[in-house]
Structure formats: C-alpha cells, structure tokens
C-alpha cells in the first residue's frame, strides 16, 4: 500500500486542519498541490460574493477600472480567480477605503457581467465620460440589483455632460431596474476654472434632466455640481416646479452646489389645492469647503408647513 500523503487526507479531516489556520496560511496551501488548491478555494470562498461598494471607471475606450469594496476578505476570491481577464489585485492597505478593495482591469463592461454574476451590489458608482458605453449600464445594474447609483460625470470635451443620458431612453431603461435613487456628480469637470471658460450654464440644463429622470419614475435624485447652477435655478426653478406639480410627482431632490447669489431659507410652492405642495429649502454652510444644499421635497398631507404656499 503506498504511503499516505497529506493531500490524501479525507476532506472532513482536511477541513479541520485548514480551519485551524489563519487565512494567509490557508491561501499559501493553495500552491502546495492542485487538490489542496481546489479544496482551499471551495472552503474559504463564500457561496455568494457580497460587495459593499462598487465603482466602475472607463479609462480608455476598451478598458474599465472597477473598485469593489468587499464585505469580507474571502469574497476577494470571487474576483481574484480571474487572472485570464488581466485582473489586477491590489493590496488592501494601498487604499484608504475601510474594507478590502480589489482593483480589476478588464476589457469591457460585459466582462463585469460575467465577473459579478451572482453578486448583489446595493450602491454603485460609475464614472462616465464621452467614451462610456452608457447603453450597457442599465443591464449591468439590473443584474447587480443595484438600488442606488451614482454617476460621476467627467467630460471635459463635451460641455453638455448629460448628452449621453438624453439619448437611447437611458432613464427609462434605468427605471426598469431596481434603481430607486440616482446621484449625479458633476463637480470635477468644472473644478478647473480654465475648463469652465466660455461655459454657458444653460448647456447643462440640469432641471431638464431632472424632469426626464422623474418622468421615468425615479424620484430620489441627488445632484452635486461645482459651478453654474445658480442662474439655472433662478431661470428654471418655477417652470420646473409647475411641471412636477402638474404631474404630481413625489420627489426628494437634493442639489449640492455653491450658491453664492441665492439666499438661505425655506419656501413652499403649490399650484392649487388639489396639487402637491413642494418645500424648497436652501441651506448655506458657513465653511466654504462644504457645498451649499438646495432641496426640493414633496410635502405630505400630514406634514405641517409653517409657510403659506406660494402660488406657482
């Protein structure tokens, strides 16, 4: 009878041995033999990969970078066993994120559908520029059952950062997924004042985009903008409120921006008694490193409003 090898231990005993080892030593066992590799991976890989946070950034026309914050270290095995996809796994301490980020570089968003099959990601951040294949995003988010998505708009070439969203029924397709809250972050593009030269605020038409999002049924909207929103608020707020009031949208819209010329305060707007009331509040931070807040919320019937509604 040939001598027994450690790799011949029955699985139930191997399991006891491995459980008594720290994770790093368990992973080292993987390179001892094929059998141990398969056993260790199957033992320490959770049945489901739970991500706390995922961000996807397109850095070249055919390349995206994903930052995934994992709920536990073992989940990384779901992502790490993809060497053939040129996955780059970085050490946790290289990032300031509190959990265990894994950076991956892959060839297209379709890879991530394969990569993240079976994963649920509650909150996703996607960096968008003019090269982003935006039509792929709703199906990816649908697969991930994402409830809250943040779009970081980086388009220094195109002034109209929402141009990509306006076409291809993007918001309708997004609304058909599990997404209930949408955030636009547009503060990087114009952070550099040189890039903002010649910029006409109306080019962005934020309120038009908000209308589009609302009309598709996504009512929780967050918008972070660096510059150029004040004049649009002054010009477009009342028409916007009239539109959403007539449609009786139940909204919660929070805009964070520098509102130099807009006064702090609270107002309530209403077209008529049969239409919803909307509270518009402006809160200004004394310290300039915070963005001021501009919020539009539907007032519920049982919510007290000290202010008399302003007729729209």
């Amino acid at each position: 009878m040939p001598a027994m090898l450690v790799t011949d231990l029955p699985p139930e005993l191997l399991r006891i041995v491995i459980k008594k080892l720290p994770l790093a030593d368990q992973l080292n066992l993987r390179s001892a033999s094929r059998g141990l590799n398969a056993f260790v991976v199957s033992e320490i890989k959770p049945a489901t990969c739970q991500l706390v946070h995922l961000s996807v950034e397109q850095v070249q026309s055919d390349t995206v970078v994903v930052v995934a914050v994992l709920q536990n270290r073992e989940s990384a095995l779901h992502l790490a066993a993809l060497d053939e996809l040129h996955a780059d796994v970085e050490k946790p301490w290289k990032e300031s994120l509190e959990d265990h980020p894994v950076h991956l570089t892959a060839e297209s968003l379709s890879w991530f559908k394969t990569l993240l099959a079976g994963c649920t990601i509650d909150r996703a951040t996607i960096v968008v520029d003019h090269r982003t294949q935006i039509e792929e995003i709703p199906s990816l988010l649908a697969q991930l059952q994402t409830r809250s998505v943040e779009f970081v708009l980086r388009d220094v070439v195109q002034r109209d950062m929402f141009r990509l969203f306006r076409h291809s029924h993007f918001f309708a397709r997004l609304a058909a997924t599990a997404v209930k809250e949408i955030t636009f972050v547009a503060d990087d593009t114009y952070f550099d004042r040189k890039l903002a030269n010649g910029y006409a605020p109306g080019d962005c038409a934020y309120f038009e985009v908000l209308e589009q999002v609302l009309s598709n049924g996504i009512t929780h909207i967050r918008l972070r903008v660096a510059l150029g929103l004040e004049s649009e608020i002054e010009e477009s707020l009342l028409p916007f409120l009239r539109t959403i009031s007539l449609a009786a949208y139940d909204v919660d819209i929070l805009i964070k921006a520098s509102l130099f010329s807009i006064k702090e305060g609270e107002k309530v707007y209403r077209i008529g008694n049969e239409y919803p009331r909307y509270r518009v509040t402006v809160y200004k931070f004394q310290q300039r490193h915070y963005s001021d807040e501009f919020r539009i919320q539907t007032l519920k019937e049982d919510e007290e409003a000290d202010l008399a509604p302003i007729a729209l």
């Binding site: 270290r73 990384a76 060497d83």
Partner: peptide, 24 residues
C-alpha cells in the same frame, strides 16, 4: 516538508501567487 510532488507549472504557481496578493 511533506514530500508532496509538484503538480504545478511555474505559470500556474505565479497565477496563484498573484491571486493571493490581496491577503498579504
């Protein structure tokens, strides 16, 4: 130490090493 024969190619060993980097 345990007298286990090496079944891996150098490429396979390197792939596992890279996959394990996240835990270091």
């Amino acid at each position: 130490e345990w007298g286990v024969p090496n079944e891996f190619t150098p490429e396979e060993e390197e792939a596992i090493r890279k996959e394990n980097e996240w835990s270091e």
